[in-house]
Amino acid sequence: MIDNLKIPCPTSECNSQIDYNVAALIGGASFGCQKCSAQIKIASSSISDLKTTYEKFLDLKNNLSKK
């Protein structure tokens, strides 16, 4: 699934990666680091921005695949 991505763990000196899914992130899900147990989640103030951009991105992808 293309939405499954990795982001570097923000905890200092952890150097691990956190798996996340964009759609679930927008839905308010938390994603945990396997190494240090830190959990990331989108801040409620940014949900709208991410949702809008992601929807535009999906539109672009659909339009390009049709061409």
């Binding site: 982001i7 923000p10 830190a38 959990q39 990331i40 989108i42 991410l50």
Partner: peptide
């Protein structure tokens, strides 16, 4: 965009532990 991070171990013992908010470029998400 803003994301929040919390340490799961700390939050288990301390329900009032604060979330840390950090920002990262939208392009990376």
């Amino acid at each position: 965009i803003s994301l929040t991070v919390k340490n799961a171990k700390e939050s288990a013992s301390d329900q009032t532990s604060e979330l840390i908010t950090f920002q990262l470029p939208l392009i990376t998400i």
